[in-house]
Simulated assay, not measured.
Amino acid sequence: MSRICDLTGKASLVGNHVSHSNVKTKRKFHPNLQLKRFYIPEEDRWITLKVSTSAIKTINKIGITEAINRFINKGSI
């Protein structure tokens, strides 16, 4: 299961663990992804998406259909 947001395209970033002695080892920063069901009234059906919490906040603000349209036009999907 990939760690990529279905709407925004957010993915894992690579960085370093830095210890007290300043030794650097590789690590990953994973996005905060949640499995969430959304109801689309125009199609009268439910869809399940793996979205980041920031995308959930955007969906709550502007609605699921507008969010999908906005992200498609942006080119994230």
Rank of each mutant, 00 (worst) to 15 (best):
L7C: 00
R37L: 09
R70W: 11
S76H: 04
K61Y: 10
R70K: 15
C5N: 02
K57Q: 09
F71P: 08
K74T: 09
V23A: 06
G63W: 00
N22I: 08
R27K: 09
K74L: 15
E42Q: 07
H17D: 09
C5E: 00
T25L: 09
F29H: 02
N16R: 14
I4A: 11
T25R: 14
T53A: 15
A67K: 01
G63A: 01
T53W: 11
K28P: 03
R27C: 08
R45V: 11
K24G: 08
G15T: 10
T53C: 15
N69F: 10
K74H: 14
Q34D: 13
K36L: 08
L13A: 03
I47R: 01
G63K: 00
W46M: 13
G63I: 02
L35N: 04
I62S: 10
N60Y: 03
R70N: 13
H20D: 05
V23N: 12
E43F: 12
L35H: 02
I40G: 07
K28L: 07
S52F: 11
H20V: 10
N22E: 13
R37H: 14
S19D: 12
V18D: 02
F29I: 01
I62L: 10
E43W: 07
G75E: 04
S76G: 03
K74E: 14
I56R: 15
G75H: 04
T53V: 15
